[in-house]
Design a protein around this nucleic acid. Structure first.
Length: 364
DNA sequence: CAGACGTGGAA
DNA sequence: TTTCCAAGTCT
């Protein structure tokens, strides 16, 4: 770090805001509003998720649930299809819970301080600050991946951000940057500018320092260590697991000509919690037992092309097995299981790889 | 504190 | 191909 951060702190926020107004993003679907609901929804969807991925989900979700009361009076099962495929499903469950808490205890509106906002489910310190900054102009700093890149480089902050000391220094520096800024600071532009700078200019691989409004004071630029910051955390090899998924296809009826598929709702918490997946089995014998329970000899099952699904912390080898059965022979579904008509699969909350498997069979 | 928690795009 | 990781939070 530079010994004396003060002169570089004083000019920091102003440079970010000026850059944002000329070169930042201004036409994302969740910009140009002070509606805390829309801001909140976008912030949650954008957690660990790229802008391009979020845009479509944001529009569809907002059309179906236009405000807090609409979301609060819906059931979780009505909400999950609008999040399916986006990942990190605890976000959707917390979003729904939060709407109900706001409706029940906060008059259906967001509280106006970041501290109060951060007490709500699924909203941590950074998201609370972002909501307050965009909706109310509150001078409370955020600290996400983009901002960490900008701050570690500009101020020369070493150490992995999972360490308490590093995290605390980042937040302290972020607070000082706001305090050192003029009272008239456009907090929304500053907050957006930090993220845009990290996203468009101060990127991980090839930072475009020539375009950067902070170049003159940047520690990493001065020392040529852009690629060393932020300090990378050591990676761990992700374990691999395997499972067999059963596609039990009940033949069509007059009502549902394409038939129905047996799905099983996943428990929360847990992978895909709240979504409807295909029944999974750890090995061939477990699959055989399941087939025979449904009156199907397992030798009638057809093995389909396998696929590898990569999660953050493990890889899953999926082996799908297809079995068709007559409607007349079929028993009652087990707990958390249901027969879902093929016509309804498109609007069902399916995990991404399950949608891919079923999409190959039924053109969802 | 370290691990759980998804998915897809980029290098 | 492999690895990284993107507007994090919760336990």
């Amino acid at each position: 770090m530079f010994l004396n951060q003060e002169p570089r702190l004083a000019e920091f926020a102003g440079a970010v805001v000026e850059w944002q107004k000329r070169h930042g993003r201004h036409h994302l679907p969740w910009q140009g509003t002070r509606d805390a609901y829309r801001i909140w929804l976008s912030e949650i969807m954008l957690q660990q998720t790229q802008v391009a991925t979020v845009v479509g989900y944001y529009e569809r979700f907002l059309s179906r649930f236009p405000d807090i009361p609409a979301l609060a009076r819906a059931s979780q099962d009505e909400v999950m299809p609008y999040w399916a495929g986006l990942g990190y499903y605890a976000r959707a469950r917390n979003l729904h819970r939060c709407a109900q808490e706001l409706a029940a205890h906060w008059d259906g509106r967001f509280p106006d301080t970041p501290e109060q906002i951060a007490t709500l489910p699924g909203i941590g310190r950074s998201t609370a600050a972002a909501i307050a900054a965009f909706a109310y102009g509150t001078r409370s700093p955020i600290m996400d991946g983009n901002v960490k890149r900008v701050f570690t480089r500009y101020f020369g902050i070493y150490g992995v951000s999972s360490q308490r000391a590093t995290e605390q220094l980042l937040w302290k520096t972020a607070e000082e940057a706001v305090q050192a800024a003029p009272a008239a600071l456009d907090m929304a532009a500053y907050t957006q500018g930090l993220m845009d700078l990290g996203s468009d200019c101060c990127t991980r691989g090839r930072p475009d320092c020539a375009r950067c409004p902070l170049q003159a004071g940047c520690y990493a630029y001065a020392h040529g260590v852009q690629h060393e910051l932020p300090t990378p955390k050591q990676k761990k090899a992700s374990p691999e697991r395997e499972c067999k998924m059963l596609i039990l296809h009940q033949e069509g009826s007059v009502l549902h000509q394409a038939g129905s598929i047996l799905l099983e709702q996943q428990l929360s918490p847990g992978i895909w919690g709240g979504l409807w997946s295909l029944p999974q089995y750890g090995d061939a014998s477990a699959l055989e037992v399941a087939c025979s329970n449904w009156g199907q000899p397992s030798n009638q099952a057809q093995k389909m092309a396998g696929l590898l699904h990569t999660f953050t912390h493990f890889k899953l080898h999926i082996e799908p097995w297809y079995v068709q059965c007559a409607a007349t022979v079929v028993a009652e579904p087990g707990p958390r299981q249901a027969w879902v008509p093929v016509e309804k699969l498109a609007s069902t909350a399916l995990p991404a790889p399950v949608r891919k498997i079923l999409g190959g069979l039924f053109d969802l």
